[in-house]
């Protein structure tokens, strides 16, 4: 099977779905770059080149460069979705979502509910999240937990190129609004991705490692950290199950509870700030539903409750590290160095 990058996987999903369904349009800031102006067309392909080539292939009617007005073009995407198109909007950094909260939280998420199930809103908002890019506090947040909080939104967090293609295709075909989170440190990550199209159903966690001693539940980029830690610890005789929930809304509570109960020792890894994040959410779930199966207190590995620092040295310390995950696993298993 062909190796492709996370960036290629996303681009391929967009391109193949746009070929399949003419109602799919993409829009965002510089997703073509130079569109409609004199000079070079398709100059950018988005800030990190994900949509490069799509303008040339699908033309100006389906690849729309928008003004730097998130409230405007996200509102336009939501409206277009409610009236028959399937827009995929790119909102550069999730940190900027704040300026279009009303369009997302009050409009997109609520249409189906407010109109008695008669309206559907098949919009996808692709966005970059996460630290590690030296982009400081206004361009490095996670915030997927904020969207998970809102009923009516679906939230996907692909952890590798295979997941990115399959989850994005599912997001595009889904009739509900989906916020699709791409970690900016992962665009060059490579993995095996089928050339054919496939959809990964939402709400089905992936168990990426199976072990007996501890269960690590990790989100997005952190899944890869957890896998690496699990592989390292297995050489020391500590075997871990690693769970990638894939989507935080809907959340595969069944797999989380099952795998937590199997080992009784749980570590939850979440790159978001520690208050009201996915780690607290999942920990509460396990405590309510599987408390009697726990053999040790749950450990959460998260970023601190502080803005993402610009200083490279501090940012590295800020992000949940493999060392911290390893220490947490050793702690819950009682098998320290």
């Amino acid at each position: 099977m062909a190796k492709k990058s996370y960036r290629q996987a996303i681009s391929e999903a967009l391109s193949q779905e746009m070929e399949r369904d003419p109602t799919i349009v993409i829009m965002g800031e510089d997703i073509a770059g130079g569109a409609g102006a004199e000079g070079e067309q398709d100059a950018w392909g988005g800030p990190l080149g994900v949509t490069k080539g799509l303008y040339t292939k699908f033309g100006p009617d389906r690849v729309l460069d928008t003004p730097i007005t998130e409230s405007g073009f996200i509102g336009a995407a939501v409206g277009a979705a409610a009236s028959g198109l399937r827009p995929v909007a790119e909102l550069m950094f999730v940190d900027f979502m704040g300026v279009c909260f009303d369009q997302i939280f009050n409009q997109a998420a609520k249409f189906k509910y407010m109109f008695g199930g008669k309206a559907k809103t098949p919009v996808v908002i692709r966005t970059m999240y996460g630290a590690g890019f030296r982009a400081a506090s206004q361009h490095s947040q996670c915030l997927y937990n904020v969207f998970t909080h809102i009923p009516g939104l679906k939230v996907a967090l692909p952890s590798n190129p295979y997941e990115a293609k399959g989850l994005l295709i599912q997001a595009i075909r889904d009739d509900d609004p989906v916020i699709f989170f791409e970690h900016k440190a992962m665009y060059d990550m490579e993995g095996e991705v089928p050339d054919e199209t496939y959809a990964i159903p939402f709400g089905q966690a992936n168990v990426t490692r199976e072990g007996d001693d501890a269960t690590i539940i990790a989100f997005g980029r952190m899944v890869n950290f957890a896998n690496t830690v699990a592989d390292k610890l297995s050489k020391d005789g500590i075997t871990c199950t690693v769970v990638d929930p894939r989507t935080t809304s809907p959340l595969d509570t069944e797999t989380i509870l099952e795998t937590a109960a199997e080992t009784g020792r749980v570590v939850v890894v979440d790159e978001a700030h520690p208050r009201c994040n996915m780690a607290t959410d999942v920990s509460a779930l396990i405590c309510q539903e599987a408390f009697d199966k726990l053999k040790a207190p749950i450990k959460m590995v998260t970023a601190p409750h502080a803005p993402v620092p610009f200083s490279a040295a501090l940012e590295d310390l800020y992000i949940p590290s493999m060392d911290k995950i390893e220490a947490a696993v050793r702690s819950v298993t009682g098998k320290s160095h």
């Binding site: 295979y162 399959g166 089928p194 054919e196 199209t197 496939y198 959809a199 990964i200 992936n206």
Partner: peptide, 11 residues
Amino acid sequence: EDVLKFKRLDG
């Protein structure tokens, strides 16, 4: 997982 990946392919 490989069988699941196969089964997910369109068609």
